[in-house]
Amino acid sequence: MPLVTSPPSNVTAEQLLLAEALVAAQLGIASLEGGTLAEAGVLGSSGLIVLTHPCVSIQALTLNSAPAAGILRGPWTVDVLSVTRGQPVPYTISYTWGWTAGTLPPGIRAAILLTAQAGAAAAGRVGLKAESMGPVSYQYTDTATQGSLPADALALLRPWLPLRF
């Protein structure tokens, strides 16, 4: 069942599910519906932990096996303030990632709806096309908007995009 449950009338449930899958893929995750994850690593000199999934809340954080505090600086980054910068320190973190229908951020919801509407509009245009200009004639298949996110949806997702190095 889709997370966005009240689509516009011209959008089918299948188009909505496809839009959710495209948005999740753009965010680098398999699904927008999440769970709880535990990760471990070594904290470097930056004092930042880069997560593998977009974090909604932190359940537990330890440094050198002792409880610690951190600030969620973005959906993918935790800043561990209590660390002396410059020393590698082992950490473990447990956090909740993903959303439910009631907690889905408005920007992600809007990106899903825009993508689904673009897919619905493209469904009527997909097929063999032909153009002629003078003696030159071209035939092609128009699938440009099927399976891709519109630019305005991509712009809405910018705050949730994973860090790329």
Rank of each mutant, 00 (worst) to 15 (best):
T77E: 09
A116M: 09
N64D: 12
L3K: 13
I29Y: 07
A130S: 15
V83K: 07
L104V: 00
G47I: 05
P159F: 09
T84L: 10
A130F: 08
P54L: 02
A155S: 09
S46T: 11
L81R: 06
G41E: 13
Y140W: 13
C55H: 05
Y138P: 05
Y91A: 01
E20Y: 15
P135H: 09
P75Y: 09
A24Y: 14
A38L: 12
A110V: 02
L114F: 08
L156N: 00
P67N: 01
G34T: 05
Y91P: 01
A38Q: 13
Y140T: 02
T52R: 14
L32W: 13
G44W: 11
Q26W: 11
A123E: 07
A38M: 14
L81M: 10
A38N: 15
P88N: 02
G98T: 07
R164A: 00
I29A: 00
V126D: 05
G44M: 13
P159L: 05
T141R: 10
T84H: 10
R158V: 01
A40I: 09
K129H: 13
R125F: 08
P135R: 12
I71L: 14
L113G: 02
V42A: 04
L37M: 11
P8R: 08
A123D: 07
Y140F: 14
G44E: 03
G127Q: 10
G44H: 10
V4R: 12
L18A: 07
A110F: 02
A38E: 15
W99N: 02
I49M: 02
L43I: 00
D152K: 03
